[in-house]
Amino acid sequence: MEIQLPALPQAPDDEAEPIWQALLQRVGQSREVSNLLERARRDFCAAMRDLHGDAIQDLRLRAGYTVSLRELWHLRTELYQLIAFHLDQAEADRRLVPVNRHFPARAMGHATTSEHHAHSSLFL
């Protein structure tokens, strides 16, 4: 499985939607995205729960200040490297499973455009 970078949001298909409906929908999406981001941050930091050091503390702080799942996705490599350094590669693989569930995944080379866009509004 390949864990993919979350897509950027796409413009709405129906431009004739009343502005108040669009705003209400956007508020609902913002809450959903905020909740998803908070859960992803918790899992991200839980992967480092028993690790210590300046690099670990720095990564915890940066993860806490991420403003999107897309931004958090970019920190995954560093998380993996730090866990593998402090423990081992097998433990890094195991600890990233709960983190990776927050991001789109696909079998290598098999994602379709519609699958890719289905998740795009969640990853601002």
Rank of each mutant, 00 (worst) to 15 (best):
M1Q: 13
M1F: 08
M1S: 14
M1Y: 07
E2M: 14
I3R: 14
I3L: 11
Q4G: 12
L5P: 00
P6T: 02
P6Q: 04
L8K: 00
P9D: 05
Q10P: 03
P12V: 09
D14I: 03
D14H: 04
E15F: 13
E15Y: 02
E15A: 14
E15R: 09
E15T: 08
E15L: 13
E17M: 12
E17R: 11
P18D: 14
I19P: 08
Q21M: 15
A22I: 09
A22H: 09
L23G: 07
L23Y: 11
L24T: 10
Q25H: 09
Q25V: 03
R26C: 13
R26N: 15
V27P: 02
V27L: 15
S30Q: 04
S30F: 02
E32G: 09
E32A: 09
S34G: 11
S34D: 14
N35G: 12
L36Q: 11
L37N: 00
L37V: 01
E38W: 02
A40W: 00
A40K: 01
A40F: 01
R42F: 15
D43M: 08
F44R: 05
F44S: 03
F44V: 03
A46D: 07
A46N: 07
A47M: 04
M48L: 15
M48P: 00
M48Y: 03
R49Q: 14
R49V: 08
D50L: 07
D50N: 11
D50K: 04
L51M: 12
H52R: 13
G53W: 08
G53P: 09
I56V: 15
Q57H: 07
Q57Y: 05
D58C: 05
L59Q: 05
R60I: 10
R60Q: 10
L61M: 08
L61C: 01
R62E: 05
R62I: 04
A63H: 00
Y65K: 05
T66W: 01
T66S: 13
S68R: 00
E71A: 04
E71G: 00
L72C: 07
R76Q: 12
E78T: 10
Y80R: 06
Y80P: 01
Q81W: 05
Q81M: 10
L82E: 07
A84Q: 15
F85P: 01
F85E: 12
H86K: 12
H86I: 00
H86D: 06
H86A: 14
H86R: 10
L87F: 09
E91C: 03
A92F: 04
A92M: 11
A92D: 03
D93L: 09
R94Q: 10
R94K: 12
R95A: 00
R95G: 08
L96Y: 06
L96H: 01
V97W: 05
V97E: 14
P98I: 06
V99I: 06
R101A: 11
F103L: 13
F103W: 12
A105G: 15
A105L: 08
M108F: 13
M108A: 08
H110L: 12
A111C: 06
A111N: 12
T112Q: 07
T112K: 10
T113M: 15
E115N: 07
E115D: 15
A118M: 04
H119F: 09
H119L: 12
H119C: 10
S120D: 09
S120E: 03
S120C: 05
S120P: 01
L124K: 03
L124Y: 02
